[in-house]
Design a protein around this nucleic acid. Structure first.
Length: 290
DNA sequence: GCACAGGTAGATT
DNA sequence: AATCTACCTGTG
């Protein structure tokens, strides 16, 4: 299957080169790969190539795809309904030099709006794994269990497909102890159709409680799903990186996790999750909290 | 050989 | 309620 010629995405977000790369391949999503001079990504039944050059962002998709559908899928995935410029400006960077450093390093960074089920799967794979390993696991599971995409590669499997496959097939994808959690969650979700979609209609606190009721989902993964799969920008996932940032760069030595969450909510405000992603990116780049 | 990696759940204190 | 600890596998 051939890909279309490159086409300008006129309404694309205003990324810098680095924030473009960091948004796609910085740990929010696990199915983007840097090819030659472009990124290739998959979500839902979409396969899209994106390239960021001096003219903006251009896309290419498998030939048979309707261009308007590609644009719509991109707009949805990049949460184009959100004004990230204003949200970023709403963060307390004027009085917070750590945050200011992160904002200046990654201007244009965004929070993606990924398919809910895929987001849950990706972060169920993520515990004590590095991003390249999470991506490798997702790829292995897709190859084994997923439906074919228009270019002949594989989508992530549905929860029903995962439930039917069984825990051993997941262990074969190097999921280790995560395989049991994922399979049990798959059994529940395949037996309760619409449960995830209904969760998405709830206020964030109630949605979080429901997500945490799933096997293998604790506070951190639930917050990742809220943030990256439900557009809840107030969700503030605290992982080992963010924990170190808060302790070292903000001086919050000895604070309990509940206290750190309170600090984040009060200090960063309604777009705390966006601040989290800036700080995460800056820490991984070695700019803060080394 | 061994510590550590975008955690969670169950046991122990 | 706070603090261990087991759980898989790959990497440095």
């Amino acid at each position: 299957m051939a890909f279309s010629d490159w086409q300008l995405w006129a309404e694309a977000p205003n990324f810098s080169r680095i924030s473009f790369s960091e948004t796609l391949d910085g740990g929010q999503a696990f199915r983007w790969n840097r090819k030659d001079d472009y990124f290739e990504g998959r979500w839902g039944d979409n396969v899209v190539r994106l390239i960021h050059d001096g003219d903006g962002i251009h896309w290419s998709a498998p030939d048979r795809k309707n261009p308007n559908q590609v644009i719509d899928a991109l707009s949805d995935y990049f949460a184009s309904d959100q004004n990230f410029e204003a949200l970023t400006d709403s963060l307390p960077w004027r009085s917070d030099p750590v945050l200011e450093t992160a904002l200046r390093a990654f201007p244009g960074l965004r929070i993606l709006r990924q398919p809910l089920g895929e987001t849950l799967f990706g972060f169920l794979c993520s515990s004590t794994k590095q991003i390249p390993q999470i991506k490798a696991i997702c790829e292995a599971v897709a190859l084994d269990l997923g439906d074919s995409l228009p270019d002949g590669t594989q989508a992530l499997p549905t929860w029903t497909q995962i439930a039917a496959a069984g825990e051993d097939r997941l262990r074969a994808a190097k999921l280790g102890y995560r395989a049991r959690y994922i399979h049990q969650t798959a059994l529940f979700l395949s037996g309760n159709p619409g449960w995830l979609e209904q969760t998405e209609t709830l206020p964030s606190e109630a949605a979080r409680e429901r997500l945490i009721s799933l096997p293998g989902v604790g506070r951190k993964i639930a917050d990742c799903v809220l943030l990256f799969g439900m557009g809840r920008l107030e969700a503030f996932p605290i992982d080992t990186w963010v924990q170190k940032i808060l302790v070292r760069a903000y001086g919050l030595h000895g604070w309990k996790s509940e206290q750190l969450l309170d600090f984040a909510r009060i200090h960063f405000g309604p777009a705390a999750g966006l601040a989290q992603q800036y700080l995460f990116a800056a820490a991984r780049a070695g700019l803060i909290a080394r």
